[in-house]
């Protein structure tokens, strides 16, 4: 464990707490893409298949349970909660995210570390996470103005993988055997997808204006 990875995990945790705060405090999920939340639940469920077979540390296991649990709770809130589900932007959140799932699975069948059940699903979860934010970014552009908590949620979610990239660079120089090409390339793609959001987020912060994404 290094400071970059720990910072990345904490930033990821903060993004989830901000999202839970927004939904719980405002009893609204307007501006949040249910499809992105469903994709993230799938990402965690397929990535942590080794949850009960490989033990690394209490921290590792606890964080996996937190990520799986929170993503399922958020999906439940947005689908089932009698008040929250009324504020879901159903007509705006129309990204066909099934294509993202199929594309990631096909790519995982082609590019993986080993052709084993766990490795295929691990690679699938890495590829899917890289593009899971697309429905959310599209929804933000369509819904025009972004409320603060939603903007902060996307900002922290985008930042965490950037910390992981620093972690991979650090591990590359400190651990001779470290080789994790799949994560590095997917992580770069994932962070790059947030680039324009970060730009508009920084502009709105600098000018102290509401975050506006161009349609």
């Amino acid at each position: 464990m290094n400071i970059f990875r720990f910072s990345g995990d904490m930033t990821h945790l903060i993004s989830i707490l901000v999202l839970l705060l927004k939904i719980y405090a405002t009893k609204s999920c307007s501006g949040i893409s249910l499809k992105t939340q469903e994709l993230y639940a799938l990402v965690f469920l397929t990535r942590y298949l080794n949850l009960f077979t490989e033990f690394f540390s209490v921290y590792n296991t606890v964080m996996k349970l937190v990520f799986i649990g929170s993503s399922l709770v958020i999906v439940w809130y947005m689908r089932m909660h009698r008040v929250v589900k009324l504020s879901y932007d159903k007509e705006l959140d129309t990204f066909r995210h099934y294509f993202l799932v199929v594309a990631s699975f096909v790519l995982a069948l082609l590019v993986h570390e080993k052709f084993t059940f766990q490795e295929i699903f691990w690679a699938f979860s890495i590829y899917l996470e890289a593009i899971a934010i697309l429905p959310q970014l599209v929804l933000l552009q369509r819904s025009g103005n972004v409320d603060n908590l939603t903007g902060q949620y996307v900002f922290f979610l985008g930042s965490y993988r950037a910390f992981y990239i620093l972690n991979w660079i650090y591990r590359y120089f400190t651990e001779n055997h470290f080789a994790r090409l799949i994560s590095c390339i997917s992580g770069l793609v994932q962070t790059a997808l947030y680039a324009d959001f970060f730009y508009y987020y920084f502009i709105s912060w600098k000018n102290n204006k509401k975050l506006q994404l161009p349609a």
């Binding site: 490989e54 690394f56 964080m63 996996k64 570390e113 080993k114 490795e119 055997h177 080789a179 994560s183």
Partner: peptide, 10 residues
Amino acid sequence: LREEKVHDEL
């Protein structure tokens, strides 16, 4: 020996 790959990251 191919190093055993461990997914120790989240």
